[in-house]
Design a protein around this nucleic acid. Structure first.
Length: 860
RNA sequence: GGGCGCAUAGCUCAGUUGGUCAGAGCAUUCGGCUUACAACCGAAAGGUCACUGGUUCGAGUCCAGUUGCGCCCACCA
């Protein structure tokens, strides 16, 4: 039953102006979105909100997908669930470091000492970044992220996200550090995390290792250089390479075992050009006869295929490229000839790019370059945030098993993906493709500064060398720790770096190693297990399709190992926002629209309406037309609500028993169907359809029903019973529609609700249709449909006669199968159409015919 | 090379197990200042449902293939 305040307080001129500020403030004060942490798990709906990267800026795509989640949150809350809807900030990692460097004009130099009085330059000069200690750098990171987070929170509140802001976390805060380190220690104890020295994809700009999931291919121009190796018999064998600078790193040539051209060569040695190094010719299936000359150099390491060959053919390593992407100073021992050592000396210290140019000149001079380099374009691996091609460098790194080297783990993780409900379902395929295609474990260590350190020290032997096989680990109760300032149990700070002492692991975890624990962090795992067990496993993981391979997958991995199950039951995958030209939005294209502009121009509800019209998993165009439509809907809701309330009068409540007129009952029956459909749509994460049905009903209510009952509802003196019926039906419909639209348009629905109801519409009960069914008393919607159709016929006749809709009509004959239905609302129809003489005829015709005879005075 | 998705009015998109499914909104045109709303209301016009076959009494709807677009993956000498 609708609750009613004693008097309605409807503004004379309703407006959207100021509703966002007004209600955002009220919601904050009254705590309508607070999570009830006494609720049992079965009564909780928990959301694993994506923590946006605060170093970036929010774009309209964020607004789009976060709105989808908010609609779910509001729906579940109104259905009586205690909604756990936290917000996280992803503020650790490389993007923040980069932003801090640019913003403050500094760069991190870990060798410097902490300066407690440091303040960043007034005018940052990007060309002359001031070197600061690691601790100073991290303090600047923290300062800037706090400021960024406030900007984000402001936007989210303006958009009307029903987040419980008491449950906010940041991926760099102490709780996240503790959770990350704890989970890591447990992974290590179970053998799921391990340290290994291995060839790794390496970004030379950031000087850090990069994981498989963060790679992207970019087309780059290059050239095939045909070069000649000397055979023992004096002849040559030619290879083509796009990376001639790696000739000194060449450890073998490889050909396909079935390649007749080279069969006799396999097992022999050849001598490399310029450097004169003897390298064997080996056979391997991966060598492709039709690429280049069919013979290829194996270098340390040109690409991941080189790594495979190196490993499978048991070849030596001959590194020439350092962590900084420059040619190493140390001449490889294999280069023994003086002219070879000379040649190498000319490359030392050069970048890969420069070394390539020099070596081409040298090859040209020595006559070992065959023909001219042939330009080509080919895909080159890049770190997705980097500007230079990745190198392959051998380093010691931490890994977490993810099935990349273990078929059983892989199968288990694919099985987890099948347990998860995906919206839309086909997104599961992306997960399976990714997991099935992994070719290595998950590399989680990064050689960076602003991140969560590994909680690990290594003992130093008597000569000061670390023993990586026997790491020293802290007790979980000591977390979080920083091994660069904390001292391991049983040691003193004086022993740091000293022989027989210890050193801390210098690396930090990749940001995904932390965000993969977002359900545990938000749910306060092991810090507040009472809370954790009420929210975990969570109900929903909303996220973008681009990070299925990273965030979604890694979260499943962590939960699978730690909890033996999925971290959530459902995942909702959003599509992209495309600009009106169907291009993906990106900063570089300059087509990014700032969300706040949009919110101010069209109102938050209007933007939400546009977002809600985009389906999950479907790319959606940025469409200002839809925003205008949303704004119109919000304004219409103001006006229609005002009208309905003014017609109903200040003291009449909605009494289902008072609904006696067939038309009123039919309208409520139709609405009951809408309630049932919208409810099941939202329950299955189809917000678009729910909105569409609700909206359609609302406009039809305004266009037809309101027009039909206007006169009757006003005229209580002539027929009090019929008027009361209309008034009660109006209020029942209004109450239902306000609630149905609340998840989509939270501001305007709260505004209109406040005119006549106690409390927040967002704390109101989701309509279940019971009172509507009671009022409809078994009636169907036929009377409404037939009457509305007849009314349209009358309007059409007036429109064709170019008359005002108020024009009088002399006679109207309605005939057809449904004429009888329309007849049951004949008085309303006559009033709405200004018809003097209205009559009905039954016939078998399915279509309703409306013959209109205009009043003589009105024609012409 | 493999995988996923998409293709319906000028535009943005609905069309859930094949049978009123050829629709909505925007834009356009025409007509209305109707006392809730001109940030409004009413009406009209608009499409061989990408193409080719097939299954069926019947196909936007199912199957096969083709073309185009988008995205993901792949060992890229």
């Amino acid at each position: 039953m609708t609750q009613r305040s004693p008097d309605f307080s409807v503004p004379s001129k309703p407006s959207l102006d100021g509703v966002e500020e007004k209600w955002a403030q009220v919601w904050e004060q009254t705590g309508v979105y607070h999570f009830d942490r006494t609720a049992q798990r079965s009564q909780v709906y928990a959301i694993d909100t994506p923590p946006p990267t605060v170093s970036g800026s929010l774009h309209i795509g964020h607004v789009f997908s976060y709105t989808h989640t908010d609609i779910v949150a509001r729906f579940q809350r109104m259905r009586g669930k205690a909604v756990f809807y936290p917000m996280g900030w992803d503020d650790n990692g490389l993007p923040t470091e980069r932003r801090v460097q640019n913003y403050y004009g500094v760069r991190c130099d870990p060798s410097l000492a902490y300066d407690p009085d440091f303040s960043p330059p007034e005018k940052p000069d990007p060309k002359r970044q001031v070197p600061v200690s690691r601790r100073n750098f991290i303090e600047l990171c923290e300062r800037l992220t706090v400021a960024d987070e406030q900007v984000f929170e402001h936007l989210w509140r303006r958009l009307g996200l029903s987040v419980d802001w008491r449950y906010t976390y940041a991926t760099i805060d102490d709780d996240s550090r503790t959770a990350s380190q704890r989970a890591f220690l447990r992974n290590f104890a179970r053998g799921e995390a391990y340290l290994a020295e291995a060839p790794t994809l390496w970004d030379v700009t950031f000087r850090t290792a990069v994981a498989q999931a963060e790679l992207e291919d970019r087309e780059r121009t290059g050239a095939y250089h045909r070069i000649a190796f000397q055979r023992p018999d004096g002849r040559t064998v030619e290879v083509e390479t796009t990376r001639p600078e790696l000739i000194p790193a060449c450890v073998a040539l490889v050909v396909h075992p079935d390649d007749e051209r080279y069969r006799e060569l396999v097992g022999q040695s050849v001598r490399s050009p310029l450097f004169g190094v003897e390298v064997p010719v080996r056979a391997h299936e991966l060598a492709e006869p039709d690429k280049g000359t069919g013979a290829a150099m194996i270098c340390t390491f040109g690409d991941l295929t080189d790594v495979t060959w190196w490993r499978e053919l048991n070849l030596p390593a001959r590194p020439v490229v350092g962590w900084d992407g420059r040619i190493l100073a140390q001449t490889p021992e294999a280069i023994v000839r003086p002219e070879g050592r000379d040649a190498y000396a000319q490359l030392v210290g050069a970048t890969v790019h420069t070394a390539r140019e020099r070596i081409v000149e040298m090859l040209r001079a020595s006559g070992e370059l065959v023909g001219e380099p042939q330009p080509t374009t080919r895909p080159v691996k890049f770190y997705e945030k980097g500007d230079k091609p990745l190198e392959v460098v051998t380093t010691r790194q931490w890994y977490i098993r993810n099935g990349g080297r273990d078929a059983q783990v892989r199968d288990e993780l694919i099985a987890r993906g099948r347990e998860l409900n995906w919206y839309p379902d086909h997104m599961r395929t992306r997960y399976e493709n990714w997991v099935g295609g992994l070719n290595g474990d998950w590399l989680i260590s990064r050689q960076r500064f602003f991140g969560i350190p590994f909680p690990v020290w290594y003992p130093l032997d008597s000569s000061g060398n670390p023993d990586y096989a026997a790491p020293i680990l802290p007790d979980e109760s000591a977390l979080p720790i920083d091994p660069s300032s904390d001292v391991p149990p049983g040691y003193t700070e004086e022993q740091r770096g000293a022989a027989g002492g210890f050193i801390g692991d210098p690396d930090v975890m990749d940001t995904w190693a932390t965000s993969s624990l977002s359900p545990q962090i938000a749910g306060r795992w092991e810090r507040d297990n009472d809370l954790f067990h009420r929210v975990f496993p969570m109900d929903l993981r909303p996220q973008g399709q681009d990070i299925i391979r990273t965030w979604l997958f890694s979260t499943v991995v962590r939960s699978h190992f730690e909890h033996g199950g999925l971290p959530w039951h459902n995942t909702a995958i959003s599509g992209w926002i495309l600009d009106p030209d169907r291009k993906k939005m990106s900063k570089s294209k300059g087509n990014v629209v700032t969300p706040m502009d949009m919110l101010e121009r069209y109102s938050s509800d209007a933007i939400r309406y546009w977002a809600a019209s985009g389906r999950l998993g479907t790319d959606t165009a940025l469409d200002e037309g839809q925003m205008k439509v949303g704004r119109r809907l919000a304004i219409k809701l103001l006006n229609a609500s005002k009208f309905a309330l003014s017609v109903a009068g200040p003291h009449s409540g909605a009494d289902p028993a008072a609904v006696t007129e067939p038309l009123d009952r039919a309208m409520l029956a139709a609405l009951s169907t809408v309630v049932a459909d919208a409810t099941s749509d939202l329950a299955s994460y189809d917000h678009t359809r729910a909105l569409e049905r609700t909206e359609r009903f609302f406009w039809e209510l305004c266009d037809d029903y309101l027009e039909l009952v206007k006169a009757r509802a006003y005229d209580a003196e002539a027929n009090p019973v019929a008027a009361a019926s209309a008034r009660s039906a109006l209020l029942l419909a209004l109450s239902t529609l306000h609630r149905l639209l609340a998840p989509f348009l939270p501001f305007v629905t709260e505004e209109v609700w406040s005119w006549w109801q106690e409390g927040s519409v967002h704390g109101a009960e989701w309509p279940d249709g019971t009172d509507l069914d009671t009022a409809a008393a078994g009636a169907g919607a036929d009377v409404l449909h037939a009457t509305a159709e007849a009314l349209r016929g009358i309007r059409k006749a007036k429109s064709e006669a170019k008359l005002s809709m108020r024009a009088d009509v002399a006679r109207v004959r309605v005939c057809g199968k449904t004429a009888e239905d329309a007849r049951r609302a004949s008085a309303d129809l006559a009033a709405a159409g200004n018809v003097q003489d209205l009559f009905f005829e039954d016939s078998d015709e399915v279509e309703l015919h409306v013959d209109v005879e205009l009043a003589e005075s009105a024609t012409g």
